[in-house]
């Protein structure tokens, strides 16, 4: 294994981790499996494409071809994706949480509603924007560095650094802010949190918006490597869900560990000559099944820690 492979694996892992953490936090605090995470991903990508396309002339006119222009462009792409993601989170809150959170069968019904949202949004995007993929402006620019005889593309490095930064910020928010404390209280014991006066309704909104924004960041970062399309969210959703489960739902560190494991597994399987790219999914799921047989609650989830 050489550095190039490690970079490739980390690149995959950081995108997966962004998705998986969102799903994991949401499940343990709000008790919702968010199937609309893929739709959030795709919508954020389109929002970033639309806004950056609209603002491109203005930025070019103001800053010309300076470094400032690319910095502005990068922040426009990121900001629009994050805002769109947060907005999607708010929509999910309004449709899949608020009307039914105190009604029977809440967890199954919220799963179904988010699933319906996912299907509906993906098809609406396809219907409105057409089947063509869209390219986002390359915020990290084109090119690569040579490091220890290995080529590292800008977008790979940018994705790894950006994702790690966002994750650290999120964890810091959870750790040090008042809201974060409330969310963690809900993650540990929802009933206990309710007894100590933490409102579920009031906490669910920021959590949903935060996880939506994480999906937005993932969309903006992944779109540096591939393109924005209506079905772009499917793979990240499936990967995010499986990794969140593999990590043990509700365990943030478990999710990160699982993302890194799967990232490396995919990278390594991809270069083994007789396996190759076509057996990547095969190997991933075989690995997950194996882990689940030996550790029924995933990697991070100790039996009592995870939510029942």
């Amino acid at each position: 294994m050489d550095l190039g492979l490690i970079i490739y694996a980390l690149n995959l892992a950081s995108i997966y981790a962004l998705m998986a953490i969102g799903i994991s936090i949401l499940w343990s605090s709000v008790g919702m499996i968010n199937m609309a995470h893929g739709a959030t991903f795709a919508t954020s990508g389109y929002a970033a494409w639309f806004v950056s396309g609209a603002l491109k002339p203005a930025i070019a006119a103001t800053f010309g071809k300076t470094v400032m222009a690319s910095v502005m462009m990068a922040s426009v792409v990121m900001l629009s994706a994050v805002l769109a993601g947060a907005f999607c989170g708010a929509v999910i809150y309004a449709l899949a949480f608020l009307p039914i959170h105190d009604k029977p069968n809440y967890s199954v019904r919220s799963l179904i509603i988010t699933l319906a949202l996912n299907i509906g949004v993906v098809q609406s995007l396809l219907w409105y924007f057409g089947p063509r993929n869209r390219g986002l402006p390359k915020v990290f620019g084109f090119g690569r560095w040579e490091l220890l005889d290995t080529k590292i593309r800008y977008d790979q490095a940018g994705t790894i650094v950006g994702a790690s930064l966002v994750m650290i910020l999120t964890l810091a928010w959870l750790r040090y802010s008042r809201r974060g404390l409330e969310v963690r209280a809900m993650m540990q014991n929802a009933e206990g949190a309710a007894y100590s006066g933490i409102s579920r309704q009031a906490t669910a909104l920021p959590v949903l918006m935060l996880t939506g924004a994480l999906a937005g960041v993932a969309a903006a970062l992944l779109s540096q490597t591939i393109f924005v399309s209506p079905t772009a969210g499917v793979i990240p959703l499936v990967k995010g869900l499986t990794i969140a489960l593999l990590g043990g739902l509700g365990s943030v560190s478990g999710a990160v560990a699982a993302a890194i494991l799967i990232g490396f597994l995919e990278a390594i399987v991809g270069v083994i000559p007789f396996l190759g790219q076509r057996y990547v999914m095969f190997a991933t799921f075989s690995f997950i099944i194996l882990v689940l047989i030996f550790r029924p609650r995933g990697i991070g989830g100790l039996l009592d820690n995870t939510r029942e």
Partner: peptide
């Protein structure tokens, strides 16, 4: 070299 749709990243190829 075998690839599988969808190809997320062409780096290994």
């Amino acid at each position: 070299t075998d690839i599988q749709f969808p190809v997320q990243d062409w780096a290994p190829v």
